[in-house]
Measured scan of single mutants.
Amino acid sequence: ASVAVIAAGTQGNIFATSALRSMRFLQILRMVRMDRRGGTWKLLGSVVYAHSKELITAWYIGFLVLIFASFLVYLAEKDANSDFSSYADSLWWGTITLTTIGYGDKTPHTWLGRVLAAGFALLGISFFALPAGILGSGFALKVQEQHRQKHFEKRRMPAANLIQAAWRLYSTDMSRAYLTATWYYYDSILPSFRELALLFEHVQRARNGGLRPLEVRRAPVPDGAPSRYPPVATCHRPGSTSFCPGESSRMGIKDRIRMGSSQRRTGPSKQHLAPPTMPTSPSSEQVGEATSPTKVQKSWSFNDRTRFRASLRLKPRTSAEDAPSEEVAEEKSYQCELTVDDIMPAVKTVIRSIRILKFLVAKRKFKETLRPYDVKDVIEQYSAGHLDMLGRIKSLQTRVDQIVGRGPGDRKAREKGDKGPSDAEVVDEISMMGRVVKVEKQVQSIEHKLDLLLGFYSRCLRSGTSASLGAVQVPLFDPDITSDYHSPVDHEDISVSAQTLSISRSVSTNMD
């Protein structure tokens, strides 16, 4: 405001104040949320940038038409019409005319000016109207692209899951042992070998009828009888010197917790746990005396209480009078009846079946994303299906024409109403129809010849004498029936064969 007042002088105070007050009108834009329509302006900018070359070309040609039209109309009207006294007036008329506004304040009066105005109007309006069409088509394409992008975003994750499931299904095939990355992934998420051994031990116990592997080994086996189970490696608790092959000598807290839970599941009659010990102070733990958990001091820290809870689970003690015997301790020893080589084939089979199920689920979810969402998608899918159906029908028609023997030239002739090819031409065609016709002709010829021969033979049998045999009239074959199959017997006289037959029969009768 200060700059405006200084620039306008003393009389500019009122002007500056009114100008600043008129800017209050811009507050109405906040009512229509114009300040939060950044996406709309961004869309407009992207459309203009995408079609910038077309817009520049249309505007450039339109500007050239405007300059030439205004100049030529000015030359034609400057002497006869006072409205075109300057080139600026003519340029104003050209702008209003070519933009199809047409105020009518300035019009050419001479015939030359009117002809020039009409010609440049028809030429220039087309170029001035091009930017509107370019922007409209650009907006339509952009909206369609955003629509497809939205659908693509919805299909991206199911497609990625389907590709991942397909690759993992491919890589978990037993015949592709060189693909090891997927197996490394499952090695990292699978439970430890100790848990798998416990699982298979329970399965084997159920197969043995509820007997433990130790009891199965204690059962008497006759001499020479084959053992029911192959000899396997035996594993004891981590306190002993022997372990399962492939295990580490260090046992983690999870393994100890699972070991304690498995020992508690063996039965309360074979294992008696004394009350857990509780320390009397955060600094020292008295293991010899058993106290109640309700006497825990409230001033303990979080670490002390955590250690106390761990001691409740991981440090059970047995009383002296209830101490288990050596046999019970041997039964409680952890027996590992299986090795990694025995378990891994079954584990890989389970993983393979899981990968198949996940692949089928991913495939079903991806197919669900291909379903249409709204009416536009339904129409688009219907149009695509219609085009596909037309293509299939056209391909089927082409194959039928190839089989029947109607080529493209014959199809055009039928469409024009011309006469089709004759039967002889159809026979000569190298097509399925021509071959079928040729075979039918040959079969008819053979059938006719057989009928003639059978009739001749029956007449010979009825006559009974050589004289009557020679008097029999043998009809000749019709050459038209034989089609294109020409037998060497067709052109010979059958009477010669009949005479030869009669001579042979007379000779045979004389010999008798």
Rank of each mutant, 00 (worst) to 15 (best):
A165P: 00
A166G: 09
W167S: 00
M174V: 07
S175T: 08
S175N: 08
R176P: 14
Y178N: 06
T180P: 08
T180A: 07
W183G: 11
Y184H: 01
Y186H: 07
Y186S: 06
Y186N: 12
D187V: 11
D187G: 10
S188N: 06
S188G: 11
I189F: 10
L190I: 08
S192F: 10
R194K: 11
L198R: 01
F200S: 12
E201Q: 09
Q204K: 10
A206S: 11
A206D: 11
N208T: 09
N208K: 14
G210V: 07
L211P: 06
R212P: 12
E215K: 07
V216E: 13
P220Q: 08
V221G: 12
D223E: 13
G224E: 12
A225E: 11
A225V: 09
R228C: 08
P231A: 15
P231L: 05
P231H: 14
V232I: 14
A233V: 14
A233D: 09
A233S: 09
R237P: 09
P238L: 14
C244G: 11
S249C: 14
R250Q: 05
M251I: 09
M251K: 15
G252C: 13
I253V: 08
I253L: 14
R258C: 03
M259T: 04
G260D: 06
G260S: 14
S261C: 10
S262T: 06
S262A: 09
R264Q: 04
T266R: 04
T266P: 04
P268L: 13
P268S: 15
P268R: 15
S269T: 13
K270Q: 04
Q271K: 13
H272P: 04
L273V: 15
P275R: 10
P276T: 08
T277A: 05
P279A: 14
S281T: 05
P282S: 10
P282Q: 07
S283N: 15
S284C: 07
G288C: 14
G288R: 15
S292T: 05
V296E: 15
V296A: 15
Q297H: 14
Q297P: 15
S301T: 02
F302V: 05
N303D: 15
D304Y: 15
F308I: 02
R309Q: 11
A310E: 13
S311Y: 12
S311P: 12
L312R: 10
R313K: 14
R313S: 02
K315Q: 13
K315I: 09
R317H: 04
R317L: 15
D322N: 15
D322A: 14
A323V: 10
E326K: 13
E327G: 14
V328G: 04
E330K: 12
K332T: 07
K332Q: 11
Q335E: 07
L338H: 09
L338P: 10
T339S: 10
D341H: 13
P345L: 12
V347M: 11
V347L: 08
V350I: 07
I351L: 13
I351T: 06
I351F: 11
S353Y: 12
I354L: 02
R355K: 09
L357V: 14
F359I: 13
V361E: 08
K363I: 10
F366C: 02
K367R: 07
K367T: 04
T369P: 02
Y373H: 08
V375L: 04
D377E: 13
V378D: 13
I379T: 12
E380G: 05
E380V: 12
Q381L: 00
Q381R: 06
Y382S: 15
S383T: 02
S383P: 15
A384G: 12
A384P: 12
H386D: 03
M389R: 02
L390Q: 03
G391R: 15
G391D: 01
G391C: 12
R392P: 01
S395C: 12
S395I: 05
Q397R: 02
V400L: 13
D401Y: 15
I403F: 05
G407E: 03
P408R: 13
G409R: 10
D410G: 10
K412N: 02
E415D: 04
E415G: 09
G417C: 07
D418G: 15
K419N: 10
G420E: 07
D423H: 11
V427E: 11
D428N: 15
D428A: 04
D428G: 12
I430M: 13
S431I: 10
R435G: 04
R435L: 06
V437D: 12
K438E: 12
V439L: 11
E440G: 13
E440A: 15
K441M: 14
V443G: 14
Q444R: 13
I446V: 12
H448R: 12
H448P: 07
H448Y: 06
D451H: 14
L452V: 10
L453P: 02
L454F: 07
G455A: 14
F456C: 14
F456I: 06
L461Q: 09
L461R: 14
R462G: 06
R462P: 05
S463C: 13
G464D: 07
G464A: 10
G464S: 05
S466T: 15
S466W: 07
S466P: 04
L469V: 12
G470D: 10
G470A: 09
A471G: 09
A471P: 04
Q473E: 08
D478A: 08
D478H: 09
D478Y: 04
P479R: 04
I481M: 05
I481F: 05
S483F: 04
Y485S: 04
Y485C: 13
H486D: 05
S487R: 06
S487I: 12
S487T: 04
P488A: 06
P488L: 13
D490V: 09
H491P: 05
D493H: 14
V496L: 06
T500P: 12
S502R: 14
I503L: 03
R505P: 09
S508R: 04
S508G: 08
N510K: 13
M511R: 05
M511V: 12
M511L: 03
D512H: 03
